[in-house]
């Protein structure tokens, strides 16, 4: 998941456990903005621990900065734990709701394709159907592309949620967070601030 894209930007996936207090998201957003990182997707929800929320980010930016962002996040007082899981063995899912035009004529084919992709139809209107797609980003992307032929009216995506895979044997260790990120880290270049 730590891919360098055609535009030279890197994407990394981070999971953070944060205090569920007002303003926490603003602090995190401020940090990303200040370090020049784009939040490509963000999913937030309650965790198994009281007062703590878990966030999954997909961060996008200059490879050196994105590789370092977990360490900057860790410094925020209200971030209890953070891991860059881009290079780990994780399961991740995203959910999308897609409203597609489905007229009398096209409806059977839309439903047929939905079935093939194991996508459920959650709402049916006179001229449209709304489907719920769960899966990895590729699956959602392909489904949306397939539906373009019929007319995609609205897309709503949750952003990725990710979790480390469990151990395969009882008593074994769950997929560990990479302890040191040194391997991912590329030091900055061109630091010239040009300031007096």
């Amino acid at each position: 998941m730590a891919d360098i894209q055609a535009n030279g930007l890197a994407r990394r996936t981070l999971v953070a456990l944060v205090e569920n207090k007002p303003g926490v998201l603003a602090r995190i957003a401020s940090l990303f903005r200040r370090r020049g990182i784009n939040i490509a997707s963000l999913a937030v929800g309650a965790s198994e621990q009281k007062d703590l929320s878990r966030m999954t980010f997909v961060a996008e930016g200059d490879p050196s900065t994105v590789g370092h962002i977990a360490k900057h996040l860790e410094k925020l007082i209200e971030v209890v734990d953070v891991a860059d899981i881009s290079d780990n063995n994780v399961v991740w899912r995203e959910l999308a709701m897609v409203r597609v035009r489905a007229t009398q004529d096209s409806r059977p084919r839309v439903i047929q394709l939905a079935n093939i992709f194991r996508v459920s139809i959650v709402d049916v209107g006179a001229e449209t159907v709304t489907m719920e797609i769960t899966g990895d980003t590729d699956k959602i992307d392909s489904m949306i592309t397939l539906m373009e032929e019929f007319g995609v009216e609205q897309v709503m995506r949750t952003g990725r949620v990710a979790m480390l895979r469990s151990a395969l044997s009882p008593g074994g260790e769950d997929g560990a967070y990479s302890k040191t990120l040194a391997g991912n880290i590329i030091a900055r270049e061109g630091l010239e601030s040009g300031s007096v």
């Binding site: 860790e74 880290i185 270049e189 061109g190």
Partner: peptide
């Protein structure tokens, strides 16, 4: 200065209380 040309002959030890400073520049 230019980090690419900084002390290229030297190995470096970096002692810092802030983990985010390690390998930053």
């Amino acid at each position: 200065g230019d980090t690419k040309r900084f002390a290229t002959n030297a190995k470096k030890i970096h002692i810092d209380i802030d983990p985010a400073e390690i390998h930053k520049n």
